[in-house]
Design a protein around this nucleic acid. Structure first.
Lengths: 116, 116
DNA sequence: GGCTACTATCGACGTCGGTCGATGTATCGA
DNA sequence: TCGATACATCGACCGACGTCGATAGTAGCC
């Protein structure tokens, strides 16, 4: 949690190897990655990411997710918090609504971790 | 169209778009994918995959994993079963040992699911 | 058969996580 | 100011999961 990966925008390509299947992968980096994949380890959260990715405006508010997901509003908010903590989505308040958008860079980072 | 390189190899009955961030992603496929990512949502299992990927012979037995992982033999076996159930590794008995190897196609399948 | 080594399974424990109803907070409009 | 809407947080329930010691199963060796 102390190492905010989003802050590494300026530092384009980190020195360490992003692909985890190349090097022995130490416990610290394994923990960090596991947290990322854990955010993906739920069907509701995967569908949230899918909806956000397919959204025309690139964002969606909570009220637009409750119906399609078939979960209560607190549950959807809970999952959005999990995704936000993992850096996969970001929410910004616009009036009464909070618009959530996908962080494609963070998704790509996890994807590159599975590079072979 | 440029993202179908790996999936073109194994065209099973699910001919839908492999990238989950393109289509709305139904509940069934979300469940299937979540099971895959759940197998990756543990640091010990990620390190197991890393060790297998880095192994010179492409495989490793349980006794070779217990030491580096710092977990008991039952715990390592438990994680290997989880990975095997998710299709990420395969084990074959050779004498007293069971050699586990990485299923790179399955890893690539999960990776392509994060394609943007 | 008896012994040893390697692996899988079992049982138990504590923790974590998904879910919901109830409640709190923020914003807008009348 | 009051009510309505949108979202977050809380508390509780309950099943799932990581972990280990103990035990069972499997294979080679004497």
């Amino acid at each position: 949690m102390a190492t905010d990966l989003r802050m590494a925008i300026e530092v384009t390509e980190e020195a360490c190897s992003p692909s985890l299947l190349e090097a022995p992968l130490g416990p610290d980096r394994a923990d960090e990655l596991a947290r990322g994949f854990q955010a993906l380890a739920d069907p509701v959260r995967l569908r949230i990411l899918s909806i956000l990715a397919a959204a025309a405006t690139g964002a969606a508010c909570v009220c637009d997710l409750v119906g399609p997901l078939g979960r209560s509003q607190p549950t959807v908010s809970h999952h959005l918090k999990t995704l936000a903590d993992a850096g996969l989505v970001h929410g910004t308040r616009r009036g009464k609504w909070v618009w959530y958008s996908l962080d494609r860079r963070r998704v790509a980072e996890l994807q590159s971790a599975l590079e072979i």
